[in-house]
């Protein structure tokens, strides 16, 4: 996998340049910290735990950041590390990044996701509720509890099911938006549109879904897609940019056939 990985266990001293911002109204700035004797077996967030314990003992305000499952699936963690969302490893979340990616004496720069549609709440924590509102606009199949027929009454070709699953793996972390120079949410949106339009269950709402979700995305202020592919390159779940092509096709079909 990553070339800088090694089985050897070592310790390191690091300089951290971390974005501190008290709230969304007050401007922020970088602040320098030093952490010592960090084990290469630690996760990146465990290194932040060490720093925060240090700050609390020194009577300073610990750094606020989103994190929860710490196993790469909840999509909470969201650090922009050395100029890359989720840091240097490919197909990875911040919580799964381990310190063997770094070496003694390194300076690591840590910022929050930067996008107008993701305002900073505090320090490295941002507000990603725009994603929930995009889902509210149509990212579902309208089926009330109790309405379902037998699961096997509707066969789905395996390759369609597999492709739908590959798109549905999106964890909604927002790294795609943070990586994009336009702060576009097209990869996120296209993953949901692909997931649902590839399945027969999603067919009845296929047109209205894509039109409404795109409208909500625009309303939230996300930028346009210019196909640079930065989103795909940074996505921790390797969601393919082919989904954006599918989204464009679905959108075109929906708008051209609209009454």
């Amino acid at each position: 996998m990553e070339s800088d990985r090694t089985m050897e266990h070592y310790h390191m001293n690091l300089n951290l340049k971390v974005w501190r911002q008290p709230n969304s109204q007050t401007p922020g700035a970088f602040k320098l910290y030093r952490v010592e004797n960090i084990s290469s077996e630690m996760s990146f967030l465990e290194m932040f735990d060490v720093l925060n314990e240090q700050l609390i003992r020194d009577g300073e305000d610990p750094i606020t950041f989103d994190h929860d499952c710490r196993e790469g699936i909840c999509g909470s963690c969201s650090m922009y590390i050395n100029g890359k969302p989720h840091g240097p490893w490919a197909a990875n979340t911040t919580c799964q990044l381990h310190m063997r990616a770094f070496h003694d004496g390194d300076t690591i720069v840590v910022e929050p996701w930067r996008a107008n549609s993701f305002p900073v709440i505090k320090d490295l924590m941002v507000d990603r509720s725009a994603f929930d509102r995009i889902i509210q606009a149509g990212g579902y199949i309208s089926v009330n509890t109790g309405n379902a027929v037998d699961g096997n009454s509707l066969p789905v070709p395996k390759d369609h099911a597999d492709q739908a699953f590959a798109a549905a793996m999106c964890i909604g972390c927002g790294a795609c938006v943070a990586a994009c120079k336009n702060s576009s949410a097209m990869l996120f949106l296209s993953a949901k549109v692909s997931h649902l339009s590839l399945l027969p269950q999603g067919d009845p709402e296929r047109s209205s879904r894509v039109v409404n979700m795109v409208a909500q995305m625009d309303k939230e202020g996300f930028g346009a897609c210019t196909n640079t592919g930065a989103c795909e390159a940074t996505c921790p779940k390797e969601i393919s940019i082919a989904n954006i092509a599918r989204l464009n096709k679905e959108y075109l079909l929906a708008t051209l056939t609209a009454e």
């Binding site: 579902y140 199949i141 089926v143 509890t145 109790g146 309405n147 379902a148 027929v149 699961g151 509707l154 099911a161 597999d162 739908a164 699953f165 549905a168 997931h195 649902l196 399945l199 269950q201 999603g202």
Partner: peptide
Amino acid sequence: QCVAQGVP
């Protein structure tokens, strides 16, 4: 129910 919701 989950299949109807589109759970892959």
